[in-house]
Amino acid sequence: MGFKLLSKLLVYLTASIMAIASPLAFSVDSSGEYPTVSEIPVGEVRLYQIADGVWSHIATQSFDGAVYPSNGLIVRDGDELLLIDTAWGAKNTAALLAEIEKQIGLPVTRAVSTHFHDDRVGGVDVLRAAGVATYASPSTRRLAEVEGNEIPTHSLEGLSSSGDAVRFGPVELFYPGAAHSTDNLIVYVPSASVLYGGCAIYELSRTSAGNVADADLAEWPTSIERIQQHYPEAQFVIPGHGLPGGLDLLKHTTNVVKAHTNRSVVE
């Protein structure tokens, strides 16, 4: 069995187990497998329904001669939608809004960016022009300005110390501490036991640490421990890039980060 097929099978099995364990909360999309990078042309966006009122959005972007996937989250909030992270750029984010209108038909009224990198804030200006209120932590807003990236308009308070959590509509926002970046936030959907790890969490097929220019490698494993301790009931975990899975993604990420750190020390 090929690795790609095995990865998709694991996603399907995880979703099936969740649907059985929580039949009222989960209505997993039966329309197909989780979209992969090879299936999404740059400039297009796919939506994948995880649970009743919960979707991931998947886009792709060219970077350094390669094409990478990027995940975000959409959560229903009454007759409105909360968006977590842009679709990595203005063109993708405009396509995301169009796809949401086509498939869901509810307005996106608020959006949260989970850290300051372009795959999370690139497209904020498109959201703002569409009347979406954009939010991020003060740290993310400051770092985005320093980096020359787009800056969300509103500040999220109460997320300055490791372990801080605040309720934001249908989700809980959690600051686990520094990891992929010093400002990275985690998003949890309690009604569906869905954990969105953003770039602080890796997919299972990833074996290298990737972009760690703004990471705190020493603190990252401790931050992941905080996530595990705060959300032990999480059933569906979405990484910032690639295929979702279960809580095993947290341990896998820790292993990859520690291996990278150990290699760096040896070198």
Rank of each mutant, 00 (worst) to 15 (best):
A90T: 07
V237M: 05
S70Y: 02
S70W: 00
E99Y: 03
S161R: 08
G32W: 13
V257Q: 12
E225S: 04
T134M: 13
E203M: 11
E101N: 03
L217F: 03
W88Q: 04
A25H: 14
D85H: 00
P190S: 09
D183G: 05
V67S: 05
R206A: 04
Y48D: 08
G169I: 02
L250P: 07
S70D: 10
T207M: 15
Q228A: 13
Y202Q: 03
T254H: 15
A136H: 02
T207G: 08
L10G: 10
E150T: 12
I17C: 03
R110Y: 04
S181R: 00
A178V: 09
S205H: 01
L73P: 01
D118G: 05
Y12L: 13
D248L: 05
D119S: 01
G105H: 06
L106G: 09
E33M: 12
G242R: 01
L195N: 00
G246S: 04
K251P: 11
A59F: 06
I40P: 12
F168Q: 10
S208I: 12
E172I: 06
G43F: 15
I186H: 00
D119I: 01
D118M: 03
V265Y: 15
F236S: 11
V126D: 04
V45T: 06
F63R: 09
Y202F: 04
A215G: 09
A136N: 07
A179F: 00
Q228E: 13
A19T: 07
D248S: 05
S139W: 10
F26N: 05
Y196L: 03
A94H: 09
E39G: 08
E39R: 07
R120H: 14
E99K: 15
D214V: 06
W55V: 13
L97C: 05
L173K: 00
P152H: 09
W55A: 06
V108H: 01
A111G: 15
S30A: 10
S208H: 09
S22P: 14
M18P: 03
V121S: 03
G158Y: 08
P244A: 07
G53R: 07
S161Y: 03
L97R: 02
L250C: 07
P152Q: 14
D248I: 04
T114A: 01
E80G: 12
A215R: 10
L82D: 13
D29R: 10
S205D: 08
S160V: 11
Y34M: 15
